[in-house]
Design a protein around this nucleic acid. Structure first.
Lengths: 244, 244
DNA sequence: CGAAGAGTTGAAACAGGTCAATCTACGTGG
DNA sequence: CCACGTAGATTGACCTGTTTCAACTCTTCG
């Protein structure tokens, strides 16, 4: 119960619902359920009819699509604070991707019908959903640009920059949030390429890597290495916003 | 006057405004103006404060961003029926890209303040804008996938498929809507690569190209060549929707 | 007729991908 | 407590698609 209240307060302040009247929030949470899932668990499949959408409390969820010839394209890896499947409401009630638990996760499962109903009722909800979608849009835009203009080492550097507090001056230590293979797929490259690109990045920018922990000696140096080939004046500020 | 009415009816039925009450449409068109622009004319620049957004009546507009090191990344090429700059309303009132006339164009210039105001007033407008943004979202998603999984010839084939009526059976003739160099940038490749990839496509799928006109002997064959590496079961059906 | 821009072609360089072998860390069961 | 198996990570050799740079052709339009 107490836990549920904590989660409720987290969801209430999540991007798509921020500033909504309490009765609308209640409507959204009417059929909500807290769930725990093991790694590998498939939440839903691309183009299936969507009845539930999800909020990530803890862990990591992989979003992906599969082509006719069997290749898998990773759309995104979502962590705490993100929504997934919520856009199905605007897409003929079908999921736009498949979702699989990438690291043991705690989720809130919500009902898409409720979302649809409340969206019809509440202008505030529609407006904050619009802001949310616009953010997503910009994020995808940057994704396209990054993949088009940045080399593999640069994309890794960009990923690292988004992990660290960019305002810090001295040496910063971070931890890779999930498997290197998964990061590689998230960045649209092969594990082998990731490994080699990371080595190159060590040489070029003086970062140190041991297992999952990364020591960034100079954030400034990483920025110089990466953000020249990016149209965002301050490194990727818009990519920091939570997504789904 | 008569012309204005025609345009008004076109805008009214454009994706972001479809199904809006007449008084809201009137509010949106309050400060509208019809404009003609020559090729090369810069409409607005990335990150500039956005006061106008646009509807394309005729011609082509190039959306792009420039990186710190001067490279240009083409975001999209928009034709008749598309909006541009309308998402600035949700992005701190700044344009998310630069826009330049790619082929002599006729545009309706509209006021972002009016859009913002009407969005605040009309729930219907907010909902159709949501649908519009969701479509955009999906389109970007497919763009990312295409660039990641398709080779240059495949991306050209995909572009061609979107030009032709896919239901037709026999030989179909289309015309490239704008310069090959521009198509190349739209597809994220160099002009040289485009030229070579098109040659390869001729060999592989039996299409014939003379100048801007393309003769597709078998749409089926093009699909087989391209859509294997795509997660959309029917070729790119969602990319056909109008955008901005 | 000639200049300019679009398009094509060739040769060389490069970034990533692929395949195969090896290495490492870690949890499990003997 | 240690050997083993497995999954993740790395490394090397090779291959392919795309870019780059440069030269050349073609078209178009003044």
């Amino acid at each position: 119960m107490v836990q549920n209240e904590i989660i409720e307060s987290r969801i209430k302040n999540a991007a798509p619902f921020v500033g909504c009247p309490p009765d609308i929030i209640q409507g959204l949470l009417k059929n909500a359920a807290l769930q725990n899932h093991k790694k590998g668990r498939l939440l839903f499949i691309h183009e299936d009819p969507a009845d539930r959408y999800y909020f990530v409390v803890k862990g990591w969820v992989k979003l992906f699509r599969e082509t006719l010839d069997g290749t898998q394209a990773v759309v995104d890896i979502l962590g705490a604070g993100c929504f997934l499947g919520e856009k199905s409401v605007f897409q003929d009630g079908e999921y736009g991707y498949s979702a699989e638990i990438a690291e043991e996760a705690e989720l809130v499962s919500l009902c898409t019908q409720d979302l649809k109903a409340e969206l019809g009722k509440s202008h505030e909800l529609a407006l904050s959903m619009l802001r949310h979608m616009a953010d997503q849009n910009k994020k995808q835009d940057m994704e396209i640009e990054h993949r088009a203009l940045q080399t593999a080492p640069q994309r890794i550097a960009c990923f690292l920059l988004r992990l660290v507090d960019q305002s810090q001056k001295g040496t910063v230590i971070t931890h890779l949030p999930y498997d290197k293979t998964l990061i590689a797929s998230r960045l649209g490259m092969q594990p082998e390429t990731f490994s080699r690109a990371l080595s190159k990045l060590k040489q070029e920018t003086g970062i140190k890597v041991r297992g999952a922990s990364v020591e960034v000696e100079s954030v400034e140096r990483l920025k110089n290495y990466t953000c020249q080939t990016c149209s965002s004046d301050f490194p990727c500020r818009d990519l920091l916003k939570k997504s789904g």
